[in-house]
Structures are given as structure tokens and as C-alpha cells.
């Protein structure tokens, strides 16, 4: 008792003690954190360096214009059909999902945000966004490949659409909701019908956000392999939408364990092209996003 009383009366010690256990623990934890952060950056740089190192030498005109080589062709060849195939299938998916997703988002955000169906639809979209991408492939296989009797670019597009829809829908809903209420009030106060208010005032304001969502979804879809594996599969020939169709992602997968050095190099070059494409799309969406926040 006496001792504590005495201690209380003493001047408190306010000096720094760098070797006190508390301070040491702090330093240790901070160091671990820094190391973790650095380690986490390593894969990104490693991937980028390898892509440029292994794939960079093949970046030339032929890559973008020629068809893939056979396993016995020791040099030359390109990935033109895969680039076109990827763009074509992502394009189909975008054509399906943009109107689908945006119109549904308008209902969820504006016309019936509290209705039962809106709650269920929101839940469905969130569930779909967590769907394994291969399940989208299985679904497109079941409805397109089995019914049409063959692999096709259309089936690939449908599989990608299933993956893109939730992203587009949910981001569009968010951005439409973020349009200030006073803008909607102004439109209604002028005597707009709900649709006029939506198309003339709210959608133009939400457009940048919606585009951001679309671009992100496109970027993700462009890199998807699993849904295309048994819907579009692969082809060494030029695009023929009713037949099997090549894509960058499946080309990388197919050539990744090829014994042909030529094909393997093409896999790296295709990866480089794909990553550059995806990064550009990401930058674009960020740029649009940051511009509108101002």
C-alpha cells in the first residue's frame, strides 16, 4: 500500500525507452508488416518482368496478323484469331449484359427499390457474382452447346455474359443511387415522367459510373478461361462464330505445356497482350472513376 502511494507521488518517467519490451514489440510488428507488403508486390513485378522477358520478343506485326502455328512449325505464327475471338466473345457478352444489367439496375435503384422482387434480384446478382467462373461455362454448355450441337463463339459469349452481368448490374445500381436526390426532385418538379427523369437527367449523370462498371466487367471477362474451355474451346483457324473459336486465354492454357518452344513463346506473348489489354481497361475505368469524383 505504502509503496504504491510513494510511486504515485514520484514524478512520472516520461523518457523514451527504445529497448523496453513494448517498444521492441512495436518495431518487430512494423518490420513484419513492411516485409509482408514488399513480398506482396513481388508477384506482380515478377509476372510483368517475365511477360516482357519471355513474350516481348514476339511482339511484332506477325503476332497480330498470323494464325497460330502447328506443333511442328518451329518458328513464326501469331495469335490473330485468338485476339479477334476474345474481342468478339467479350463483345457479344457486353451486348447482352449492358442493356440487361442497366435496365435491371434502374428498377433496383429507382422504380422499385424496396419491392420484394428487387430484394430477391439484388440477392441473386450478389450470389451470381460469387459464382465460380467454371459454373458459367457449365451452364452455357448445358443450354448452348448441347442444344446447338457444337462449340461456338455464341456459347462462349453467353458464358462470359453470365459472369459480367452481376458486376454491371450492381455497379450501375450503386451509381444510379448516388445521383443526388435533388437532381431527381428537380426533374420531377419540372413535370418529368419517371422514365423521362431517368433517361434525361439521372442516367446522363450516372453514365461515367456505369461505364466504369462495364469496363471492369469487360476486363475481367477478357481474362476468363474456364468458361470458354468447353463452350468456345479453341481453334487454329480464323473466326467462324458457329464453330469452335480461339481466345487469348484458352490459347495461353493450351500452349502452356506445349512441347513446342514456338507455341510456348506464343503463350507468353499472348499473356503479355492479354495483361496489357486488361491493365489498359483497368486504367481507363480508374480514370473515368477519378474524373467523376472531382
Amino acid at each position: 500500500m505504502n509503496e504504491t502511494k510513494n510511486n504515485l507521488l514520484q514524478l512520472p518517467n516520461l523518457e523514451r525507452h527504445p529497448f523496453e519490451p513494448r517498444a521492441l514489440k512495436s518495431i518487430l510488428l512494423s518490420t513484419i508488416t513492411v516485409i509482408c507488403a514488399i513480398l506482396a508486390c513481388v508477384p506482380l513485378f515478377s509476372v510483368l518482368v517475365m511477360l516482357i522477358y519471355r513474350g516481348g520478343s514476339r511482339i511484332n506485326l506477325e503476332l497480330f496478323t498470323a494464325l497460330p502455328p502447328t506443333a511442328f512449325q518451329f518458328d513464326g505464327g501469331g495469335i490473330s484469331n485468338a485476339i479477334i475471338g476474345t474481342l468478339f466473345m467479350v463483345g457479344i457478352a457486353a451486348l447482352i449484359t449492358i442493356p440487361f444489367g442497366v435496365l435491371a439496375a434502374i428498377y433496383l435503384a429507382e422504380f422499385g427499390p424496396y419491392s420484394k422482387i428487387a430484394t430477391i434480384a439484388r440477392f441473386s446478382a450478389k450470389t451470381m457474382s460469387g459464382l465460380p467462373s467454371i459454373i458459367a461455362g457449365v451452364f452455357a454448355y448445358a443450354i448452348m452447346v448441347i442444344t446447338m450441337g457444337s462449340y461456338s463463339a455464341w456459347a462462349g459469349g453467353v458464358a462470359l455474359a453470365v459472369l459480367m452481368l452481376p458486376t454491371i448490374l450492381l455497379t450501375a445500381e450503386e451509381t444510379i443511387k448516388m445521383v443526388p436526390k435533388r437532381m431527381k426532385e428537380a426533374a420531377f418538379g419540372m413535370g418529368c415522367t419517371p422514365s423521362q427523369s431517368m433517361t434525361k437527367v439521372v442516367l446522363p449523370m450516372a453514365l461515367p459510373g456505369i461505364i466504369t462498371g462495364v469496363v471492369l466487367a469487360v476486363a475481367r471477362a477478357a481474362g476468363e478461361t474456364a468458361p470458354l474451355l468447353f463452350t468456345a474451346i479453341f481453334s487454329e483457324y480464323a473466326l467462324e462464330p458457329n464453330d469452335p473459336t480461339a481466345s487469348l486465354a484458352v490459347l495461353i492454357y493450351n500452349y502452356s505445356n506445349s512441347t513446342s518452344e514456338n507455341q510456348l513463346e506464343l503463350a507468353w506473348a499472348a499473356s503479355l497482350v492479354l495483361v496489357v489489354l486488361v491493365f489498359i481497361l483497368n486504367m481507363v475505368s480508374r480514370w473515368i472513376g477519378s474524373r467523376t469524383r472531382k
Partner: peptide, 27 residues
Amino acid sequence: FDKCFRTLTFVFTWATVLLLAFIVFRI
């Protein structure tokens, strides 16, 4: 236009739900 537009958004909201149901049902 108002009627059609609202109906269309409603239809696609339903379509979202049906799509998930259809995926589960088909698989």
C-alpha cells in the same frame, strides 16, 4: 414510353432472378 420503359426494367429485374434459378435448375 414511360409505361414501356418501366415495364422493361421490371422484366429485366425478373430476368436476373430467373437467370440464377435457370442456372441452378439447368445444372
